[in-house]
Design a protein around this nucleic acid. Sequence first.
DNA 1: GTGAGTCATTATAACGATTAAGACGTAAAA
DNA 2: TTTTACGTCTTAATCGTTATAATGACTCAC
Lengths: 348, 348
Amino acid sequence: MSINEPIKGKATSFDIAYRAGVSQSTVSRALRDSDLVNLETRNKIKAIAKELNYKVDKNASNLRSQQSTTIALLLFEDPTTDDSQINPFFLSMLGSITRACSVRGYDLLVSFQQLSDDWHADYADCHKADGIILLGYGDYQTYQQKLVSLEQQGTHFVRWGAVREGHIGHSVGSDNFQGGYEVTRHLISCGATNIAFIGGVSKGAPEFLARYEGSCKAIKEANLAVNPKLQADAINTDLDGYKGALKLIDSGERFDAVFCASDLIAVGAIKALTEQNLRIPEDVAVVGYDDIPLASFSRPTLTTVQQDTKGAGEVLVENLLHLIQGEPIVTNTLAGKLIVRQSSSKPG
Amino acid sequence: MSINEPIKGKATSFDIAYRAGVSQSTVSRALRDSDLVNLETRNKIKAIAKELNYKVDKNASNLRSQQSTTIALLLFEDPTTDDSQINPFFLSMLGSITRACSVRGYDLLVSFQQLSDDWHADYADCHKADGIILLGYGDYQTYQQKLVSLEQQGTHFVRWGAVREGHIGHSVGSDNFQGGYEVTRHLISCGATNIAFIGGVSKGAPEFLARYEGSCKAIKEANLAVNPKLQADAINTDLDGYKGALKLIDSGERFDAVFCASDLIAVGAIKALTEQNLRIPEDVAVVGYDDIPLASFSRPTLTTVQQDTKGAGEVLVENLLHLIQGEPIVTNTLAGKLIVRQSSSKPG
DNA sequence: GTGAGTCATTATAACGATTAAGACGTAAAA
DNA sequence: TTTTACGTCTTAATCGTTATAATGACTCAC
């Protein structure tokens, strides 16, 4: 037993051991409720620990047990957007992820990443985190290499995004195809026959592509024709939505509805349409995707698909923890919910 | 020198030492660019480290050096709001804080807190973080006790909020008084004579109070009368703004402008006013505070005060680091910027 | 040629926990 | 009585660093 009566700085388990008249290892066990130590001593030790305001040193604990009970969240955005404007959708997810982590006793390390950095090595490798959650719209191709090396290093990670064949690692995502399908069915039921789509399809976010494909399916099912000219590229900004809408108008093609791949795009599109004196939804119905807070306050309020952000955070964390513990993963697709608002109200 | 030729799991500094033919301590020094080790050996060691994909173990490093190069961000909201709706203003701050941390080589631990928990002990005490950033609107009284005990434990922390006399610890905040003053001067210059205020004043967020007081100053300076009946309480939600506006209308008092203590409140207020067929800004001018993304897209677009969130994150982190290193703190107040939009356009 | 002064590196303790293996009574089984 | 077993606790090794003191080698001055 070490003879360090006075507590110098923060209390250590040795200080408690001394006061309790037991060995340090017993203290360590007692505080983690090991039944290798007598209940009475256990309580005594806990009492002393509380009195001394003792907290287990995370670093020492992690070092010895070789795990950090910490999860790293890596947010990466398209390089075009700066850090002051973060996608609201991801931010709302942040809440549920944090919650999900803390419920399970995990800490959350947050980091925004430029895709250029070698983030893939910086977290799990130095034992900062047990696993990584990757969040970001973006071109899968650009960071596939990093995922491969993550995989090779045996790092545990899950990503939010489209669940597709051939993708590395485990993904959790909204059922974008189904969402696009339902949006379009809704538009058709409102009387739309020429439905435009604003959102990058050829390259870029696979989520957008899935939404588009779902939309096409609905159009075909209704015996309408898919018009490729009624599709305008846009990444996930309002400015791009604005430009996309202008492009559609300039194309001279007729359209009575616009399905925007995201709410931000929709906001921009609405601005453009309004400036051209088109009435929404009378002349053109508009639907977005994501149900960001703005959607319910824009004028007109925006019909959109609400992604289950609460559930998403929960599932992401849950799956990652399963992965870490070598258990099988269950869910990986979350249903979206169509929220009908003014921008696409039914006639009559 | 330990004789462990093969690398078992992740490489350690011993593995590198073996390959470089030097001692482990030399490796440790070399990787931190100590000039106690010859430049040539240093480069050699670095090369080998890179080749082996070696990363310093954070836990071991932290344990030994007794610091974590990690900052904890504690976000706490009024208990009324749930985790799915986080104040956009704080979220936008999150971006700059993350950026500021990573630039300085610090990690960021994020946590949302219910005020009830004993978060005050859970971060610095167990060496998870070197310091804490506290973010949250909220009644100062409710968590003052925690701040006191933080202080007592010698924990370093900074908070975002009103800088007031008698408050524990270091605060960084917008100059809310000045902001309120300028908003109101602007409204008066637009011709307003009866300016209402929606936002909790008597108790609750001191930020709101400061904005109100600034407003009152401007009113008095213009030789107008401050009408206490034209002040409605509201915490920071759109619903409360809605209710507040209705209350003002029901009061029967005349008013031609509403200064809302936050954009969220303003959004709710606009909704209420519009429903009562009041035109904005013709009948009533409306101004918010915060410049959340929604402000520039609402109909009408919302005049507001843009808080310098980018600068705020920077200053918060900077100050905290100063605090940790025992250096003096310089800045603690950030100027806001009035953004005039449609909701309060000048006549003519 | 002995002592002082550099320079580059090594040997060796910490840091504060976890955990396997061993020790010591005491009670039950042989 | 001796053995086995169990409950309870201690001893000691370990995690992978960082930091301090010690070691050699080698130059330089008196």
